[in-house]
């Protein structure tokens, strides 16, 4: 796995999901996001899955553990950019993301965070 692409927008991290193939790369993903989160004291992490053509049970589990780690570090995880065909397939597969917030796009995700924080960024 190449280094995870992470940018920071006003205290919010935006993580672009890399090609995660096995447990090893999944662990490195969580480590790298965790390190940046702590370094920047981010209050939320948008996980951009718009690159993912499929989300199978393995990738779903990776997303779930990433979101869980983000929460444990005191930030809010939001999955953004899921393709409609991926969402439809996930439902049929029987998978949910265990209550992780989702948003249509990075923009919508940021707007939602602003509303929840009850202040302007």
């Amino acid at each position: 796995m190449a280094d995870v692409h992470i940018i920071s927008i006003n205290g919010v991290l935006v993580v672009t999901l890399p090609a995660v193939t096995d447990d090893g790369t999944a662990e490195r993903l969580v480590e790298q996001v965790g390190a940046r989160l702590v370094e920047l004291a981010a209050r939320a992490v948008l996980i951009d899955v718009s690159n993912a053509r499929i989300i199978d049970s393995f990738l779903g589990r990776v997303l779930g553990s990433l979101a869980g780690a983000v929460r444990l570090l005191g930030a809010e995880p939001v999955v953004v950019g899921m393709r409609p065909e991926v969402a439809i397939t996930m439902v049929e597969l029987g998978m949910d993301l265990g209550g992780v917030a989702t948003a249509l796009s990075i923009e919508h995700g940021l707007a939602g965070l602003r509303v929840r924080a009850g202040r302007r960024m």
């Binding site: 499929i54 989300i55 393995f58 393709r83 049929e92």
Partner: peptide, 17 residues
């Protein structure tokens, strides 16, 4: 179509894994 294509690839991924 796109949805069926996604279903195919997702199922293949599950069964191959």
């Amino acid at each position: 179509g796109l949805v069926d294509q996604t279903k195919l690839m997702t199922a293949a991924s599950e069964l191959a894994r």
